[in-house]
């Protein structure tokens, strides 16, 4: 929970206490209560204004934050989940399948974090294994064949760094997705809904447009990892978050992403339906039909976008 959310909870408890106290003592504290309630309203509306990068990082990782499946259910109709990479197994950290966006069939792929500890263990905390990336690629190639747009939901601390992932070629799996997605001959939209961690997020983000929810983050590595590598001190994560340019707003300014989707007051977790409606409205505005007609130009634009990344002098 964010510091300011704690403050809000504390203040509302205090107001409640004061009310009870006033009732018990039959005393009139209404003026004081009104002042406090004004203050509470103000705090609530400011709760997610001027959030720093570290606040956003915490918010993006909150267990209450809606996950890929929450959005998939609300944004699309008739989702049919499809499983497995056809090579080794079904990675539960990736969900994917076919659904309808309005009247149009689309392929939906999402990195799925758990909504509680038990599910998080099953989902490997959203850390995708090579099998998950291969499953995602299989579904994308299927989408290409049937000319369905691909919508990806990004939410991962990073690719699975475990022994099994290394044994099954984590590096190769990510690399293959980058290479294949860049000229996938169907439109691709990737939406960062929470944590966009490192190569594990990049492997689903080679898209015509990358969107980020207002309080989501996307980074080369977690700020903890960044601080640990560069300063040998992971406790300096806040400092790292400050300079890394991990927020949607910073990445928009850097032209790494195309759109920031506003979150409901208090953050996406306060109103998943409202957030889903925003995602849906934005997706419905994408000219998928025209993009499919001009797929050569779309693929060329996608290539050029990634070709132009980087900062150097010549």
């Amino acid at each position: 929970m964010l510091e300011r959310e704690k403050d809000i909870a504390e203040l509302s408890m205090k107001i409640e206490d004061l009310r009870k106290f006033a009732q018990e003592k039959k005393a009139d504290f209404s003026a004081e209560i009104m002042v406090l309630e004004d203050k509470l309203q103000q705090m609530k509306s400011e709760a997610v204004i001027n959030l720093g990068p570290m606040d956003k990082l915490i918010l993006s990782r909150m267990i209450e934050r809606p996950t890929a499946l929450d959005y998939i259910e609300k944004v699309f109709d008739g989702f049919i989940e499809l499983h497995g990479d056809r090579k080794f197994r079904d990675d539960p950290s990736i969900v994917g399948g076919i659904a309808r966006l309005g009247n149009m069939p689309v392929t939906v792929i999402g990195q799925q974090k758990g909504r509680n500890t038990k599910e998080n263990v099953k989902r490997n905390f959203g850390m995708t294994s090579p099998d998950g990336f291969r499953k995602a690629l299989r579904l994308m190639k299927q989408a290409e064949k049937f000319r369905r747009p691909v919508i990806c939901f990004i939410d991962t601390p990073g690719a699975d760094p475990g022994v099994g992932a290394e044994e099954r070629g984590q590096g190769e799996a990510i690399a293959r997705n980058l290479m294949e997605m860049v000229d996938l001959r169907t439109p691709v939209i990737s939406i960062v809904i929470g944590e966009g961690g490192s190569g594990g997020a990049l492997a689903l983000s080679i898209a015509d447009e990358i969107w980020m929810l207002e309080h989501s983050v996307f980074s080369i590595l977690s700020p903890e990892g960044f601080a640990s590598i560069l300063w040998k001190d992971s406790s300096r994560a806040k400092e790292a978050a400050q300079i890394m340019k991990i927020t949607a707003q910073d990445l928009m300014a850097l032209k790494i992403i195309e759109k920031v989707l506003p979150e409901p007051p208090g953050g996406a977790h306060k109103d998943p339906d409202g957030m889903s409606a925003v995602i849906r409205e934005n997706l419905l505005q994408v000219p998928f039909g025209a993009m499919k007609e001009q797929i050569n130009e779309v693929v060329e634009r996608r290539y050029t976008k990634y070709r132009k990344t980087g900062a150097y002098l010549e």
């Binding site: 996307f218 080369i220 960044f226 340019k245 990445l251």
Partner: peptide, 18 residues
């Protein structure tokens, strides 16, 4: 990837693969 250049380094993975 080189940490000091942040997200731009991450994007080099996409660029070189492309």
């Amino acid at each position: 990837a080189r940490m000091q250049e942040g997200i731009l380094s991450l994007m080099q993975m996409a660029k070189t693969s492309a």
